[in-house]
């Protein structure tokens, strides 16, 4: 059956002075509409590369990505990306950062009034209305990432790609943003691919966890379906046997079966 997003037999070689370096080898993955998928693995295993290929920033050497029956080979707003370091334009206010995205995606499709409402709506979704006229330098790291998420959501993507979105934040802020993300996900039911190296984050947020083996020639090691009921509550889950089972599955994969030889 045709799935929503098909990553089929993707391999990528990077040229080096000593000949091509195979970073990914034969990665195949299908994702349903509305599914939240995490990709987890040790750093340098190529999980960001997978995301960059889906995002169209990299071209696969072999294989390809098919989204809703169409091949993907260049970046586009239907696969909005939330970058790890927020990547807001420092000279634009929060509102203007979202506005730039909305204006280029919905040019000719929305009236100026509709655009304004849509921008405000998305900023409200991440609870940032109070600071929308501030410059990125004037708000905290967590708030910047909220705006980064608002900007990506405002593109109305078919797939939302998140590259370690909370990796640069402290643990408490990270927990807040995860809760916000779950809340938004309940409303919008987006299709999401999130790169992470945080086991708790992966189990808490995902429907499916993709565990990658170590590079070179990294590929998918195991796929874990997380069948925890939604809405999930951080507090209830901390003592939940099922949750802890999933958690230990991932930890065993990362630190036993595919432990990094050199840390």
């Amino acid at each position: 059956m045709e799935k929503y997003l098909n990553i089929s037999n993707v391999s990528i070689d990077f040229p080096t002075p000593n000949g091509p370096f195979r970073a990914l080898d034969n990665v195949s993955l299908t994702i349903d509409k509305g599914e939240f998928v995490s990709i987890i693995g040790h750093s340098g295993c190529g999980k960001s590369t997978v995301m960059n290929i889906v995002g169209g920033l990299y071209q696969a050497t072999e294989g390809g990505v098919i989204l809703e029956g169409k091949e993907v080979n260049e970046p586009g707003p239907d696969r909005a990306i939330v970058f790890q370091n927020h990547s807001l334009f420092p000279w634009l206010s929060c509102y203007e950062n979202v506005e730039l995205a909305v204006k280029s995606v919905f040019k000719g499709k929305k009236s100026p009034k509709e655009m304004k409402e849509w921008i405000d709506h998305n900023i409200e979704l991440v609870h940032m209305s109070h600071a929308k006229d501030k410059l990125p330098a004037e708000i905290s790291g967590g708030m910047k990432q909220r705006i980064g998420i608002a900007r990506a959501l405002a593109m109305e993507p078919k797939v939302l790609l998140m590259d370690e979105p909370f990796g640069a934040l402290d643990a408490l802020t990270r927990a807040h943003l995860q809760d916000s993300l779950m809340e938004i996900q309940t409303d919008l039911n987006n299709t999401v691919i999130m790169i992470t190296h945080d086991v708790d984050e992966a189990v808490l947020l995902s429907d499916k966890i993709i565990m990658m083996t170590n590079g070179p020639a990294a590929t998918i090691g195991e796929v874990l379906d997380v069948k925890l009921e939604r809405p999930r509550k951080r507090l209830d889950l901390s003592d939940d046997a099922e949750y802890n089972h999933y958690r230990s599955e991932v930890i065993h994969f990362l630190h036993e079966r595919h432990a990094r030889k050199v840390a």
Partner: peptide, 26 residues
């Protein structure tokens, strides 16, 4: 910052818009 350029690529900004909205201000 490469990521800022990548934001422009995701938004499919053309060359001139990229220059005026991203390259010059930064």
């Amino acid at each position: 910052d490469r990521d800022l350029i990548n934001v422009g690529r995701v938004l499919r900004l053309n060359y001139l818009t990229t220059v005026f909205k991203i390259v010059i201000p930064s």
